[in-house]
Design a protein around this nucleic acid. Structure first.
Length: 574
RNA sequence: UGGGAUGUCGUCCAAUGGCAGGACACAUGUCUCUGGAUCAUGUAAUUGGGGUUCGACUCCCUGCAUCCCAGCCA
C-alpha cells in the first residue's frame, strides 16, 4: 500500500494511512487467493438518490479496485419491483461517473440473474435445503420467535423435494396469490441469529418489474440474490455496511450449500454519519415530500446531485472520503471536515471576483464626476498562470454594509468615520461623512475622499492601512441573485431525540436579490465556480442561472476570523 | 433478557507487545492588497477494575457503555 500512497502523492491526492480492508486484501493477494485478483462492486438499490454516504462506499470500492489494479462493478440491486424505479438508475450512473469513477463494461443488474437464481433455488430444494411454506406473513413472524426465545418449525418444513419443486414451479407460474406461499431456506429455527431462522428466499409479487416486465411474479430476496450475484460476477471482496454483519452467516450458508465456483468474502465497515445534516433515505425523502427543500438536488441536500448543484467538486468529495478513513466503529464526522476539503480545492482553482452581497453606496467626493478607469486585478493569487483582468472604477461604488461601522469596536479594522482603508486593487479612501435616512436613521450613503497617489493600492510614501475591502463600481455593476446556503441542521449542543425537523437551521437558505457584481461575472456559465473575495466560494446555479438573470449558490464561506472575534465578544458580554 | 459488533485527543483515523501519531476543529503567533491563503507553535486521548509481561492501546479475565438484528425491504 505504500506504493499506492506514493503514487497518489505524485498525482496530488492526499496521503492517508491504510485501513483494515486494505490490509485484508493485501493479505489475500499475498496468499494468492483468487489468483491475486481483486474485484469489488458498488451495489445500490435504484430506489433513491445517492448521497455523500454512498460516496464513501463508491470511493472505497472503486478506490480498492484502482489500488489493487482490479475492477469494480456497478450493480443495480433491483430485486424488489415495488420500491424501485428506472428514473433512479440514470441518476445513480450520473453520480458515480461525476465522482470520477468508471465501471467500464461492468454495469449489471441483479435482475439479469433471475433465471440463474431460480435454478439455484431448485438446486437448494433438491438438496433438501429449502422448502415452500404456506404460512402467512403474520404466522411466519409468530413462528420466528423473539430475540430471546427460539422459533418453532413451520409445518411445511418436512415436505418432500418433489412436492417442493412442484409447488415452487406453480409459484413461478402464477398459480398463487401474493403472500400465499414463500420459498424458505431450511436452516435452524433456534439460531440466536434471526436471519438463520429459515429465512424467506422468494416471495410472490404480482407486479411489473422495470426491466423484466411481467416475466416474473416471484422475486428473490436480498439475502439470496446478493451473495449469488456477487459469486456470478466473480466478486472477490463484497464490502457492505455494518448492519449486514448478521447476514454474513446466511451469505456464506447460501454459497456453501450451492455449487458455485466463487465464494466472495463479505467485509463490513461503518457507514458515514455527518453532523449538521441527515443521511437516512426516509428523512431525505421527507424533506423532499414536505417541500422543505426544492428537490433531491436542492443545494442544501447531502445528495450527490445536491452537492454537485451546490458547487462541490468531485475531487473535494474524494479527498474527504479518503481522509475520513474506513473502520468498524460507529462515528459521526464533523461537517467542518467537508467544508475544509471544498475550500482547499477551490482555493487552488477558483477565479477570484468582487461581488457585494448587501450593497451600501459609497461616493468619492473628490473623484471627477464623469470619470471612470480600468484597474488590474489578479484572478487567482494562488495560481499566477490564471492571469489578470480589468475592473472598472468610478466615483460611485458599492461596498459591503458590514464593511462600514459608525461606532466601531476596537478590533474593527474596516471603514469607519475618519479612517483610511484600501479599496482592493484601487485606491486608499478615507471616510468623511455619512448620509442617513431622516426617518429611519439607516445609513444610506457614505462619503469618502481618495488619494490619487495610491492607484493600484499602494502608497508611494509607504503608509499602510489596516484593511482592504472589496467594492463594485455602481454604474458598471451587474445585478445578481445570491443564494446563501448554510448547514441544513443546527449544531446539536445537547443530546436530543427530537424530531429532526425541529433542528433544521432556519437560515439554511437566505436569498439575496440585487447583489452587485463586477462585469467579469457576465461570462459565468452554469456550474462555474468563483471565489467572491472576502465572502466565500460561489457557483452559478445549473438550473436557474442565465446571463440575463444570474444566480449564484454559496458553496461555503471563507474562514472568518473576524466573525470568531465577534462571537467571542458577544459571549463575553452575555 | 438471545445473537452480532464497537470502545484511542472535541471529531475522524493510525499505532498489531517497544517513545500513543496524523488530519480537522480550537488557541497563539508570523506574514499578507482577501480578517482568505501560507508558515510556525500550542492545547488535547487509550471505557472501569484485575491479570500476564522487563514492557500492554495491543494478550487474558471481568465489569460498564454504545450500536445493529424479531420485513414476504435492501
Amino acid at each position: 500500500m505504500k506504493e499506492n500512497n506514493e503514487a497518489k502523492n505524485q498525482t496530488g491526492e492526499t496521503n492517508t494511512p491504510t485501513h483494515f480492508i486494505q490490509n485484508i486484501i493485501t493479505e489475500d493477494v499475498a496468499q494468492g487467493n483468487n489468483n491475486g485478483n481483486v474485484v469489488t462492486r458498488f451495489p445500490p438499490e435504484p430506489n433513491g438518490y445517492l448521497h455523500i454516504g454512498h460516496a464513501k462506499s463508491i470511493c472505497l470500492n472503486f478506490g480498492l479496485a484502482r489500488d489493487f489494479k482490479g475492477k469494480c462493478h456497478l450493480r443495480l440491486d433491483d430485486t424488489n419491483p415495488c420500491k424501485e424505479n428506472v428514473e433512479y438508475i440514470g441518476s445513480i450512473k450520473e453520480d458515480v461517473a461525476w465522482l470520477g469513477f468508471n465501471w467500464g463494461d461492468n454495469c449489471f443488474f441483479a435482475s439479469d440473474y433471475f433465471e440463474q437464481l431460480y435454478s439455484f433455488a431448485i438446486e437448494l430444494i433438491k438438496k433438501g435445503k429449502a422448502y415452500v411454506c404456506d404460512l402467512s406473513a403474520e404466522e411466519i413472524r409468530e413462528y420466528r420467535g423473539t430475540l430471546t426465545e427460539p422459533g418453532k418449525e413451520s409445518p411445511c418444513r418436512s415436505r418432500s423435494s418433489e412436492e417442493n419443486i412442484e409447488l415452487f414451479q406453480k409459484m413461478r407460474a402464477g398459480e398463487y396469490a401474493n403472500g400465499e406461499k414463500t420459498l424458505r431456506a431450511k436452516i435452524d429455527m433456534t439460531s440466536g441469529n434471526l436471519n438463520m431462522r429459515d429465512p424467506v428466499l422468494y416471495r410472490i409479487l404480482k407486479v411489473l418489474h422495470h426491466r423484466t416486465g411481467d416475466k416474473w411474479c416471484i422475486y428473490p430476496m436480498y439475502d439470496f440474490t446478493h451473495c449469488l450475484s456477487d459469486s456470478l460476477e466473480g466478486i472477490t471482496h463484497s464490502i457492505c455496511t455494518l448492519e449486514f454483519e448478521d447476514h454474513r452467516p446466511l451469505y456464506d450458508w447460501v454459497l456453501d450449500n450451492l455449487e458455485t465456483s466463487c465464494h466472495p468474502r463479505q467485509i463490513e465497515f461503518a457507514r458515514l454519519n455527518l453532523t449538521n445534516t441527515v443521511m437516512s433515505k426516509r428523512k431525505l425523502l421527507q424533506l423532499v415530500d414536505e417541500k422543505i427543500v426544492s428537490g433531491w438536488d436542492d443545494p442544501v441536500m447531502p445528495t450527490i446531485s445536491g452537492l454537485r448543484r451546490r458547487g462541490y467538486t468531485p475531487a473535494s468529495i474524494r479527498n474527504f472520503c479518503d481522509r475520513i478513513g474506513v473502520a468498524k466503529r460507529d462515528s459521526t464526522v464533523d461537517m467542518a471536515l467537508l467544508d475544509f476539503h471544498i475550500r482547499e480545492d477551490l482555493n487552488r482553482s477558483a477565479r477570484r471576483v468582487m461581488a457585494v452581497l448587501r450593497p451600501l453606496k459609497l461616493v468619492i467626493d473628490n473623484y471627477p464626476d464623469a470619470q471612470s478607469e480600468e484597474l488590474d486585478a489578479i484572478n487567482n493569487p494562488e495560481d499566477p498562470s490564471m492571469g489578470t483582468r480589468q475592473v472598472p472604477f468610478s466615483k460611485t461604488l458599492y461596498i459591503e454594509q458590514e464593511d462600514f461601522m459608525e461606532d466601531a469596536p476596537k478590533k474593527y479594522f474596516r471603514l469607519t468615520p475618519g479612517r483610511e482603508v484600501r479599496l482592493r486593487y484601487a485606491y486608499f479612501v478615507t471616510c468623511n461623512s455619512v448620509v442617513k435616512d431622516d426617518t429611519t436613521g439607516e445609513i444610506t450613503e457614505i462619503h469618502c475622499s481618495y488619494d490619487p497617489e495610491t492607484r493600484g493600492g499602494t502608497a508611494p510614501d509607504g503608509r499602510k492601512v489596516k484593511s482592504t475591502i472589496h467594492w463594485v463600481s455602481a454604474s458598471h455593476a451587474r445585478d445578481v441573485e445570491i443564494r446563501l446556503y448554510a448547514h441544513l441542521l443546527l449544531d446539536q449542543e445537547t443530546e436530543t431525540k427530537k424530531d429532526f425537523k425541529e433542528l433544521i437551521n432556519p437560515a439554511h437558505l437566505e436569498v439575496l436579490q440585487g447583489c452587485k457584481a463586477e462585469p467579469a461575472l457576465v461570462e459565468a456559465a452554469p456550474g462555474d465556480r468563483f471565489q467572491f473575495e472576502r465572502q466565500g466560494y460561489f457557483c452559478a446555479d445549473t438550473k436557474d442561472h442565465t446571463p440575463e438573470s444570474p444566480v449564484f449558490n454559496r458553496i461555503v464561506t471563507l474562514r472568518d476570523t473576524w466573525k470568531k472575534i465577534q462571537n467571542k465578544n458577544q459571549k463575553k458580554s452575555k
